[in-house]
Each structure stands twice: as C-alpha cells, then as structure tokens.
Write a protein that binds this DNA or RNA. Structure first.
Length: 235
RNA sequence: GAACACGA
C-alpha cells in the first residue's frame, strides 16, 4: 500500500535498516514502489551489495523496474564504483527508449563521474536537450572529482552561456574544484559572486570549502580574517 | 506513496 511505502522510507531515513527490512519482508503486497523504497534504504545506508541483491530478486519476481528504481540502482553502482553495471543499464535504456528521462540522464552523469569515466558522463550530457542545473552540477562535480579542475571551470562558463542559473550546490562543486587545484583567486571570486550575482547566502559548507581552499594553499592570514566574519564557528 | 547534482 501507499502507507507502507511511506513507512519504509521513514525507516530508511531514520537509519533503522532492521526495521525497514523486517517490514518489507512482512508485506503481503509488494509493488514497484515498495521494492524501490527498500532499495533506496539500502543505498542510503551504504549497503550497495544488499541493494543489488534485492534488485536481482526483484527481477526474478517479474517486477518491472521504474525510472526511479533504476536511478537507485545507478546510485548503488556509483557508490560501489561498478562501471560495468552502469554501462549495462545505460545500454538497455538506450535500446528501449529514444530519449532518457532527465532523472536518468542526470543520474547517469553522476554515476559515470563517480566511476571515473567522464567521457561517458559527457556523452550522456551531450544528448540532453535541456540540461538542468543538476545536470551541469553533476558534470562539474565529476570533473572536480577526477582532478580536472580546468574542465570544471570551463563547464561553469558554458553553463552561464546557456543561461542556466547556478545554485548553492553548484558553487560547492566549484569551490571543491578550486580547492583541488589551488586556484585561490578563482575560488574567492566564485564565493563572492555567489552572493553578489546570484543572491545565494553561503552556508556553513561553503565556508568550510573556502577554509579548505585557503588552508591548503597556505593563505593563513586571509583565513584568519575569514574566520572573524563567519556567522558560525568552525567544525 | 519510492527517486536526481555538493557532502569533509
């Protein structure tokens, strides 16, 4: 039922895998949503192997996965770095539908990025008619993760040319890209631009990134000044 | 009713 799936989700978010598992096993009626809710709980709590196992079981019982189910599986692949399964799912999606849903395209970009294949991530991105801020951010984050900070910054330029508005997460990814490469002035510019040009109030995470950037690059006096203007003490 | 990008 509807209520059961909602409850499963709650257990997942409250980190009680046991309860979720127990409840799922006790369900008399299971539909795609219940299966997916259980999968999502496993993925959320870092049990990728369990998630994949459940996925096989689901297939064996003849339940057809929805886009959301596949997104959960891709998330499991990305955490576990299973590039092969990403490709497999991707291929089967391409062969059955002409265009990927934005959700799946975004998830694939993310998954390929986490599995270290930015070439694949980029090719998925390039098929999107209307990349959203999530798509762009996933791409930027993927390049940053790979250590290709220049590509991250370049993506950001492209994104602006495409008139897509960055959000708080986009800036976190950019700051992390700058941090890896020691691009202090770029990072500081992004930080300032975030509020000035986009009206985004920096959160504690943004300050954290900036501190990281300055610290790694040895800008200790700038860092001290920053601490004085921060709304919250460090963590 | 399940689901996407940052997360030390």
């Amino acid at each position: 039922l509807f209520v059961n799936s909602a409850l499963l989700t709650m257990y997942g978010k409250c980190s009680s895998l046991e309860d979720a598992q127990c409840m799922f096993d006790g369900l008399s009626q299971r539909d795609v949503v219940s299966w997916t809710a259980m999968l999502a709980a496993y993925v959320e709590l870092g049990q990728e192997d369990k998630a994949l196992q459940l996925y096989r079981q689901m297939q064996n019982e003849g339940v057809t996965p929805s886009d959301i189910t596949l997104a959960c599986i891709l998330r499991a692949c990305s955490s576990a770095g299973i590039l092969k399964l990403c490709r497999q799912i991707h291929d089967s999606l391409v062969s059955t539908s002409y265009t990927l849903s934005p959700l799946l395209a975004n998830t694939l970009i993310h998954a390929y990025g986490r599995c270290g294949s930015m070439v694949d991530a980029r090719s998925v991105f390039d098929t999107m008619p209307q990349p959203s801020v999530v798509s762009w951010t996933a791409l930027i984050a993927g390049y940053a993760r790979e250590g290709n900070s220049q590509a991250s910054l370049q993506c950001y330029e492209e994104m602006q040319l495409a008139c897509t508005r960055p959000n708080a997460v986009t800036f976190l990814s950019l700051l992390s890209a700058c941090s890896h490469a020691g691009l202090v002035s770029n990072g500081v510019q992004y930080f300032e631009s975030m509020t000035r040009d986009h009206g985004i109030t920096p959160g504690i995470e943004h300050y954290g990134s900036l501190v990281d950037l300055l610290g790694r690059a040895g800008y200790f006096t700038t860092l001290q000044n920053l601490m004085l203007t921060m709304p919250m003490p460090p963590d």
